[in-house]
Design a protein around this nucleic acid. Structure first.
Lengths: 108, 108
DNA sequence: AAACTACCCCTTGCATAGCAAAGTACTGAG
DNA sequence: CTCAGTACTTTGCTATGCAAGGGGTAGTTT
């Protein structure tokens, strides 16, 4: 893989968990929903990344899920934020802002 | 380490190479300069991260260095962008903008 | 000159985490 | 009851940040 592409991938990786928390802030979603949304915004993710990530967030109690029936297949885990998750998300939003400011101040 | 701190660290990591390229875009710098600058902007990095990173960038020919004498110690490697590095940086700036747009569009 | 201090560059070993690929399991249609 | 579609999970690999340690050079002090 091209080194430049790799750096770009790193940049996306870094904000993955932030992006996912932000995604389910308002609407609860299951894995495929999340994948679709992220792909639409160029934050490409694959199953093998997403599922372990959701498990981590669950283990840390930032998210929780409920099983829901599907009309076309097996039941789905719908994820949403816990209150701890909401706090974390707020904190990450600050981090993001601060990061944005830092980057923009680098070469001025 | 706290999980939240870990996520924040991940966010910073992702843009490290971008930040470093941006840093030396205008002014050539040696490692300690870069460390100082990054620390000042909350993009904390340590030697063990920076040196291998600079080596990678060198190997990929995005940066080059010249030895310069110091008034207070051993000579220093002053890094600056190659033309290939400038191209890469421009590309990364676009990625960064696009990323920023994506994140901000997530929960609206 | 020898020892000391400050500075600078580099390497080793470990832990984390994204990803490709393969695996398991449930559902409804034919 | 098999097949296709959907959903969730796991395994093995690789990349990389980081703590810690190593080693080398220059100027100063004794």
């Amino acid at each position: 893989m091209d080194y430049l592409e790799n750096i770009q991938a790193q940049m996306r990786k870094g904000i993955l968990e932030f992006a996912i928390l932000a995604l389910i802030e308002e609407t609860e979603m299951y894995a495929s929903d999340i994948l679709k949304k992220l792909r639409a915004t160029e934050l490409i993710v694959v199953e093998g990344t997403l599922y372990p990530l959701l498990s981590r967030l669950k283990r840390q109690e930032l998210v929780e899920y409920v099983w829901k029936e599907s009309k076309s297949g097996p039941p789905r885990k719908y994820y949403k934020l816990t209150s701890k998750g909401r706090e974390a998300l707020e904190s990450l939003k600050d981090t993001w802002k601060s990061l944005y400011t830092s980057i923009n101040s680098l070469n001025t």
